[in-house]
Amino acid sequence: MTNETLAQFPEEAKNEDSAVVFGFWMYLMGDFILFAGLFATYAVLRNNTFGGPAGSAIFNLPFVLIETLVLLTSSFTCGLSLLAARKGEARRVVGWLIATVVLGLSFAALEISEFTRLVMAGNGPQRSGFLSAYFTLVEVHGLHVLIGCLWVVALIVAISIRGLTRSNMRKLALWSLFWHFLEIVWIFIFVIVYLLGVMYP
């Protein structure tokens, strides 16, 4: 919406914002269902190791903890960028967003190194039903993180060019919902895949 029409139809603009946010929530709920399908698949195939390694043999908990901390920190910087946005400090917003994207990419890099290690040891996703389910679940999350990073980069460019316009504020809010959603999914992965995988082989 252009600023001119915004001034002309303020009530409609407000309604549009709330519709977009609600719509995005609906998308997130749908995405949750997608992950629920992958989690269910993982739960079914968890013990189908087909002579390959079980989770307890290949999961490196301290490493995963580092990954988790990196992702949680990125959630914190994401929150700080929103706080700065509320105060109207565009430069700070961009700064925190850059921090978030760096952390997000570090998380992705850690994950890729973990996967490389597994594949090199012959424990790739083709090895067994369990590993197919494990790789797919975690990779789909990782793919979401990469999409989130791409989105932040676009946001950084948009905010640098146009500042904290109404439409940029809205995009920032949506992206932060997305980013926190990924945190929540990761917590489930951490608990259900890694912790339970090591505790109950």
Binding site: V44, L45, N48, P125, S128, G129
Partner: peptide, 13 residues
Amino acid sequence: LGMHFFTAGGGGN
């Protein structure tokens, strides 16, 4: 990619 979600062998279901 040759994974084993639904295959008859390889631990699929």
